[in-house]
Design a protein around this nucleic acid. Structure first.
Ligand SMILES: Nc1nc2c(ncn2[C@H]2C[C@H](O)[C@@H](COP(=O)(O)OP(=O)(O)OP(=O)(O)O)O2)c(=O)[nH]1
Ligand SMILES: [Mg+2]
Ligand SMILES: [Mg+2]
Ligand SMILES: [Zn+2]
Length: 578
DNA sequence: GCCGTTTTCGGCCCGACTGTTTTCAGTCG
C-alpha cells in the first residue's frame, strides 16, 4: 500500500500552497483528499489501476490526475514547481508548535534560516523577536517548544492515554466548581493513538474550574489559560486541553470537543443548510438557543439520531443518520469469549487456571488457550508432544469451570516457505487453531500475502492473528495485500483477528471497515499473556466499532454452541468434495 | 479543488487565546 506515501505528498502540496498564499479552500481540499486516501482501507495503487480514484470522496479530477501522475512517474509536477518557489526550510518550520505558514515564511525569508539548528540560533540571538507581529514572548515560547519537539510529536497508544486522562479527571472532580466532567476528543472516539488529552467540564464558576486545572500537581507548565479553556503540559510532556462551558451548553460542547473536526464541520454545514447555527454553546435559530443541554438534543435539533463517538469521522455516518439510521455496532456486552491467550508454558506469565478463573469472573462462555508453536524458540514454543500434554491438563481443569468452556488450541507459526509449524494431524485435533507470522518480517508484500493465504487454505486454520504485524510506535507492519487477504478469508471461511493489544490493534479500524464491506468474519481477541489483560477486550471492540463492525460479523459474540459449529464447519468443507 | 433532498455555480465551521495591536493577525482547538 502506497497510501501513506501519496497522502504525505498531497499534504506537502497543501503546505506549499498555503505558504504561497493560494486559496485556503483549495489548500483544505488537498488536506481532505490526503486524509481520505490515508484511511482508505484499500491500496491506492489498486484503486488507480482500476480507474476508481474519482470515486473517493474528496478526490476529483485534478487530484486524481496528480495521484495517477505520481504512481506512474514518481513525481508530481505541480508540487515540484511550487517547491522551487518557497524556501525548503519553511516546510520544516511549520511543524514547530506556534509556527504557522506566515511565521515560517518570515523566518525563512527574512532571517535566512535553513534548519531547526539555524532557528534555534536565530531565536537565541533575538532576531526572531524582531520580526513583524512576533515579539519576545512569542520567540521565547517557540524556543521552549523547540526543546521538546521530539517528545511532543509522539502520539500515545489509547490504552496509555486513557488511564492518564482518568487520573486528571479524578483530580479535577475534587473541585466543587466542577459539575459534569468527561474525557473528549480522540480519547472518547477511541482512536488507536492520542495526540493530546481533551477534557470537558461544565461549571457555573469557570474561573475556579480553570484554576483547579492549571494548579494540578501533574502540571509542569501552563501553555494557555483563558476564561473558557486552558492548555497545560504534564511532566511527561503530554498536553492536556480543558474546555469549560455552562451546564446548558454541556451537550453542545461535548459534541464539539469529541469531534472529529471533519464530523464537526459536516454537522455545522448541515446546520447552515437548515437555517441554524451550531457551535460549542448550542444549536441556534437566529439568537435563540434551541438545543445544547445534551448531545441527543443537539443531534435531534439537526434532524439526526445520536451517533456513537467511535464513528464520528465523516466517513458516511452523517449521510446515513440523515436517513434516520445508525449502523449497528458490536458492543463490549456482546462478547462471549476470547479465542487467543497464552500461558506461562510459553511467553505468558500466568497459568491456564488463573486465566480460566478470570474468564469465569468476566462472564465469558469460553476461553481458548493458544500457546506458541516450536518455531518461536525465543518464547519457549511447544512441541506437539508438549501441546498434547498441556491440552490434557486443560481438559482435566474443565470440571472446575462449569460455566466456561476451555478450548485447547495453538498459535501456529507460518514459516517463510508457507508451511505451518505443526502437522495437520495435530492441528485437526485442536479445538481452535490461530495462525500468524512472527518471522522474516522484511519479505516483500506478495510473499507475506502468499504465506497468509496458504495458511488460510489449510482447513484446520480457524483464525489469522494480528494479520499485518504492525506495532504502534515501533514498526509499520510487513507489507501486505489487504484486499487479497480479505477476499481469501471469505473464500476459505477463515476468521480475521482484531488483536486488542494496545500496541497492535491489528487489524486497524480502516482495515476492519474494508473487511466489513466484504462480509469477512472477524474475531476480537486479547492475546492475553496474563489474566489482567482480558479487559483489553474493550480496545479491540472499540477498533471493531470504529470499523463499523456489527456483532454478527464478530465470531466471539456467538454462544458456545454456535461457535463450536462454526469452528467445525471449515474442516468439514475442506474434507468433503464441493 | 470539491461538491450537490434547495446548487453544475457558489458556497466552503466557528470560536478562544496570545501578543503587539492601535483595531486584529496568527495559531490552534
Ligand atoms: N469545529 C471545529 N472543531 C475542531 C477543530 N479542531 C478541533 N476541533 C474539535 C474536534 C476535536 O476532536 C477536538 C479536540 O481537538 P484535538 O486537536 O485535540 O483533536 P483530537 O482529539 O480529535 O485528535 P488528537 O488525538 O488530539 O490529535 O476539538 C476545528 O477546526 N473546528
Ligand atoms: Mg485531542
Ligand atoms: Mg486538544
Ligand atoms: Zn499470541
Amino acid at each position: 500500500m502506497r497510501n501513506a506515501e501519496v497522502a504525505s505528498l498531497l499534504n506537502e502540496l497543501a503546505d506549499v500552497m498555503e505558504l504561497l498564499g493560494e486559496d485556503r479552500y483549495r489548500v483544505a481540499s488537498y488536506r481532505d483528499a490526503a486524509m481520505r486516501i490515508d484511511h482508505l482501507g484499500e491500496a491506492i495503487e489498486d484503486v488507480a489501476r482500476e480507474g476508481r480514484l474519482d470515486d473517493i470522496h474528496g478526490v476529483g479530477k485534478s487530484i486524481a490526475a496528480k495521484v495517477s501522475e505520481y504512481l506512474s512517474t514518481g513525481r508530481i509536477a505541480a508540487l515540484e514547481e511550487r517547491r522551487s518557489r518557497v524556501p525548503a526550510a519553511a516546510l520544516t518550520l511549520m511543524k514547530v508548535p506556534g509556527i504557522g505558514p506566515r511565521r515560517a515564511l518570515l523566518i525563512a525569508r527574512e532571517l535566512g534560516v535553513k534548519s531547526i539548528e539555524d532557528l534555534e540560533q536565530a531565536l537565541r540571538e533575538g532576531k526572531v523577536a524582531q520580526l513583524p507581529r512576533v515579539g519576545t514572548k512569542v520567540a521565547a515560547h517557540i524556543l521552549e517548544e523547540l526543546s521538546r519537539i521530539s517528545s511532543r510529536s509522539q502520539r500515545l497508544p489509547l490504552g496509555v492515554a486513557m488511564s492518564a486522562a482518568q487520573e486528571a479527571v479524578r483530580e479535577l472532580e475534587r473541585s466543587s466548581a466542577v459539575l459534569e466532567i468527561t474525557p473528549a476528543g480522540s480519547i472518547r472516539r477511541m482512536c488507536e493513538t492520542i495526540g493530546d488529552k481533551d477534557i470537558l467540564v461544565s461549571s457555573t464558576k469557570p474561573e475556579a474550574a480553570i484554576a483547579a486545572f492549571t494548579t494540578m500537581p501533574l502540571v509542569k507548565e501552563v501553555l494557555a489559560s483563558g476564561e473558557t479553556r486552558a492548555s497545560v503540559l504534564s511532566h511527561a510532556d503530554l498536553q492536556i486541553d480543558l474546555r469549560v462551558v455552562p451546564p446548558e451548553s454541556y451537550g453542545a460542547a461535548l459534541q464539539y470537543f469529541t469531534g472529529s473536526k471533519e464530523h464537526n464541520i459536516k454537522l455545522r454545514e448541515l446546520a447552515i443548510r437548515r437555517g441554524l447555527k451550531l457551535n460549542e454553546y448550542g444549536v441556534f435559530r437566529e439568537e435563540t438557543r434551541i438545543a445544547g443541554q445534551t448531545e441527543e438534543d443537539v443531534y435531534a435539533a439537526l434532524g439526526l439520531p445520536w451517533l456513537p463517538p467511535e464513528i464520528r469521522e465523516d466517513t458516511g455516518e452523517v449521510e446515513l443518520a440523515l436517513q434516520g439510521q445508525v449502523p449497528p455496532l458490536v458492543g463490549l456486552a456482546d462478547m462471549r469469549g476470547d479465542l487467543h491467550a497464552h500461558t506461562n508454558r510459553t511467553d505468558g506469565s500466568s497459568t491456564a487456571e488463573q486465566k480460566a478463573r478470570a474468564a469465569e469472573t468476566a462472564g465469558y462462555e469460553y476461553l481458548a488457550f493458544t500457546d506458541h508453536s516450536r518455531a518461536l524458540g525465543v518464547t519457549g514454543g511447544l512441541t506437539e508432544e508438549e501441546f498434547r500434554k498441556q491440552h490434557e491438563e486443560i481438559r482435566s481443569l474443565q470440571p472446575r469451570f462449569p460455566r466456561v468452556r476451555l478450548l485447547c488450541g495453538v498459535e501456529v507459526d507460518i514459516h517463510v516457505d508457507k508451511r505451518l509449524d505443526c502437522s495437520d494431524d495435530f492441528l485437526a485435533a485442536c479445538d481452535v487453531v490461530v495462525a500468524s507470522i512472527h518471522s522474516a518480517l522484511e519479505q516483500p508484500a506478495e510473499m507475506q500475502t502468499a504465506r497468509l493465504i496458504a495458511a488460510m487454505e489449510n482447513p484446520n486454520v480457524d483464525i489469522i492473528a494480528h494479520p499485518t504485524g504492525r506495532l504502534l510506535g515501533k514498526r509499520p507492519g510487513y507489507g501486505l495485500d489487504l484486499t487479497a487477504l480479505l477476499d481469501a478469508a471469505v473464500r476459505t471461511g477463515t476468521a480475521i483477528e482484531i488483536n486488542a493489544q494496545p500496541e497492535r490493534l491489528d487489524l486497524n479500524a480502516d482495515a476492519v471497515r474494508a473487511a466489513v464491506e466484504r462480509g469477512v468474519m472477524l474475531v476480537i481477541n486479547t492475546d492475553a499473556h496474563h489474566q489482567s489483560q482480558l479487559p483489553l477486550m474493550r480496545f479491540g471492540v472499540a477498533t471493531a466499532r470504529r470499523g463499523w463492525a456489527p456483532s454478527d460479523l464478530v465470531l466471539n459474540t456467538r454462544p458456545l454452541g454456535e461457535l463450536l459449529r462454526w469452528l467445525a464447519r471449515k474442516g468439514q468443507t475442506g474434507r468433503s468434495p464441493a
